[in-house]
Design a protein around this nucleic acid. Structure first.
Lengths: 331, 331
DNA sequence: TTGTATGCGTTATCAA
DNA sequence: TTGATAACGCATACAA
C-alpha cells in the first residue's frame, strides 16, 4: 500500500502539502494540487484510516447492541442503522449481547479500545455505571435505559390500549393478555396499557394475564394454559408478534379457529406476521424509521456532545389482518 | 484515557517494559511485573487498539458481506459469524450489499483503509479483480465466487435431487419447480438437481419450471401462473424456503389444500418455515455451522496466508413437516 | 533484565 | 503558499 510519503515524493512536495490536498485544508497552489492529484491517482493511494484515527482519537465507527439478531425484530433495525451509517460514512459493528451484562461489558471494553464513536443499544440489562465508565455517546432504542440517556421508543402504553380497544370494538367479550418478560420495560408498559383498559370490566380476572418470555415456544405453552383455564376467551392481546405467532400455533393444535373463535392481536409488526395462517393483526412499529432516527440522533450527539438529551417517541399503528374478525351484532 | 506512558511513570519503568508485561514478550523481573500490573490496575489502563493496529498493520476485524440482513436466511449466518469472531477476539462488521457491485466495491475500499483483516462474503456479483485489487483474505459462503477462492457451501445439486426423489416417493406424479434467479449459482445448481430427476419422466415439460426472484411476493405470482397452466401438479419443489412460503400463501388464496392436493418442499431450513400453516417441509442447511466453518476458515487464512485453498461442502438434510404428505397407495 | 530510540501513517502547528 | 517537525499510542531492535 502506498503511503502519503510515496505520494509526496512522486509529486515532489512535502507530506504536509499532500495532507492539505487530501483534506482540503489550508492554501495550496492549484498547480501543485494538480501534481498531487496525479500522484495520488498514479499510485492508487488511499489514506490509512488507522493512522488517521490514531491522530484524531476517533474511528468513524458506531456499534449496535442487540440481544440477538436472530430475533426477527432486529434485522430490520440493523438494516436501518447500517444504511444510515453507510450514508454518513461510518463503519457499522453489530454485537449480539444475549441480554447478558457481562457480554455487554466485554464489548464495551473492546470497542472503547478501538475508539468507538458511539453506540445504539437495545438492552434491558445495561446499567448506568458502565455507560458512564466508558463515557461514550449512546442512544437507547426500543427500551429506555434510564434517565439521561437519549432514546427512541414507541408509545407502548397507548398502543396496547388501542389494541385492547380494538378487540372490544370488534366484539370481544373476554380478552386475555400474553405478557412479556417482567424485566423488559416495554413489556411492562404494554401490560399496563392492557390493564388500564380491562381492570374496570366485570369479566376481568388477574388470571387472564399470562406472563412469559418473548418467544414462540413459551407463548405456545402459555396460550394452552390460558385456554384450558378460560375456554371462553374470545380475544387475546400478545405483548409481541412472536408470542402472537406462538398463540396461533397453539390454537392450531388445540383446534381453535382463529379468528372465528378467538381474535388475536400482536405488537411490533414484524414480517413474520404476514406469513402465518391466518396472518397476524398487530400494532405495527415503524421499525426502520426507529432505527434511522436512533442513528441520526447518535451521530448528532457525536458531532456535538453538549447537545441536550432528546427522547423521541414514535406511534404504533394498527394493521388489520386475518387473525381478528368483527363479530356479528346480536340483534 | 491513561496511556502506556502513564503506566510507565507510575510503575517507574520504561514504556518498553510495560509493553513487555502487556504482551508477555521478553524477560521481565517478576517484581517489576508486579509493579506494572499494579499501576495498570490503578490507572484502569487499557491499551489503545488503534495505535496497536497502526503498528501491526492489522485490525483484528473481519466483515461479513450479505445481500440483505432482512432476508431471513442471513441473521442466523450473521449470528454464527459474530459468535466466532467474538470468541476469537475479532471485531465484526456487517455490510448489506444489496448484491450491488458498486456498493461492494465501496465497502471493500472503506474497509481496506481500516486494515480489515478478512472477509466472509455472500455474493453473486463480486468479481475477481476486486478481490485481487484489495488483496485480502476472503471466504465465499453459500455461493462459490470463482476458482481460487476458499468457500463453504452445501450440496445444492444433490439436495435438490433428494427433494424431488422424496416427492416422487410419497406419490407425486407431476412435480413442478420454482427456480431462483439465474445469476445466483446455487439456484442454478438446485434447478440442475431437479432437472436431472425429472427430465426422463414422461410427464415432464419445460413449462413446469417457473423462474423468479428469491422472494415471497414473486413466488406467489409464479405459483399462481404455474397452477393455472398445470392444474394437475401434485408436487412442488421451490428453490428456497421464501419461495416455498410464497407458494403456500398463493395456494391459500387459490383454495388449494396443502398437502392433500399439493405437496411442497423448500430449501434452506429457515425458521420461517416452522411458523407457516402448514409448516414447511424443506431441505435444511446447517446454517449456523456453515457460518462457523466460514469464519474459522477465514481466521486460518489470516493467520497463515499461504494455506492452501479449501472448499468445504456441507450436506443438506430433509426435514419433514406439514406441507408434504404420503399419498395412499392405489391397490 | 531493562531502557532508548525509532517507526507505524497521519494531521496540525509553526516557520519560512 | 509550502515545508519541517512534533505528536497520536504502541511495539520492537538494539544497547546497555
Amino acid at each position: 500500500m502506498a503511503t502519503i510519503k510515496d505520494v509526496a515524493k512522486l509529486a515532489q512536495v512535502s507530506t504536509a502539502t499532500v495532507s492539505r490536498v487530501l483534506n482540503g485544508n489550508g492554501y495550496v497552489h492549484s498547480e501543485t494540487k494538480q501534481r498531487v492529484a496525479v500522484a495520488i491517482k498514479e499510485l492508487n493511494y488511499r489514506p490509512n484510516d488507522v493512522a488517521r484515527n490514531l491522530f484524531k482519537g476517533r474511528s468513524k465507527t458506531i456499534a449496535l447492541f442487540v440481544p440477538d439478531i436472530m430475533n426477527p425484530y432486529f434485522p430490520e433495525l440493523a438494516r436501518a442503522v447500517e444504511d444510515v451509517a453507510q450514508k454518513e460514512e461510518y463503519t457499522f459493528i453489530l454485537c449480539n449481547t444475549d441480554d447478558d451484562l457481562e457480554k455487554e461489558r466485554k464489548y464495551l471494553e473492546a470497542l472503547t479500545q478501538k475508539s468507538l464513536d458511539g453506540l445504539v443499544i437495545v438492552s434491558s440489562t445495561m446499567i448506568s455505571e458502565y455507560i458512564k465508565e466508558f463515557n461514550i455517546p449512546v442512544v437507547a432504542l426500543d427500551r429506555i435505559l434510564y434517565e439521561g440517556v437519549p432514546s427512541v421508543t414507541v408509545n407502548n402504553f397507548e398502543g396496547a390500549q388501542e389494541a385492547v380497544k380494538y378487540l372490544k370494538e370488534i366484539g370481544c367479550k373476554k380478552i386475555a393478555h400474553l405478557a412479556g418478560p417482567q424485566d423488559v420495560r416495554n413489556a411492562e408498559q404494554r401490560r399496563g396499557g392492557y390493564m388500564s383498559e380491562v381492570e374496570q370490566e366485570s369479566w376481568f380476572q388477574s388470571s387472564l394475564v399470562e406472563r412469559g418470555g418473548y418467544g414462540i415456544e413459551e407463548a405456545m405453552a402459555s396460550t394452552t394454559r390460558l385456554l384450558k383455564a378460560h375456554p371462553d376467551i374470545d380475544g387475546l392481546f400478545a405483548a409481541n408478534d412472536l408470542m402472537a405467532v406462538g398463540a396461533i400455533k397453539a390454537c392450531e393444535t388445540l383446534g381453535i379457529n382463529i379468528p372465528d373463535q378467538l381474535s388475536i392481536v400482536g405488537f411490533d409488526g414484524i414480517m413474520l406476521g404476514k406469513t402465518t395462517s391466518p396472518s397476524l393483526t398487530t400494532m405495527a412499529q415503524p421499525i426502520y424509521d426507529i432505527g434511522t432516527a436512533a442513528v441520526e440522533m447518535l451521530i448528532q450527539q457525536i458531532r456535538d456532545p453538549d447537545l441536550l438529551i432528546d427522547m423521541k417517541e414514535f406511534q404504533v399503528k394498527l394493521v388489520e389482518r386475518g387473525s381478528t374478525i368483527r363479530k356479528e351484532e346480536v340483534t
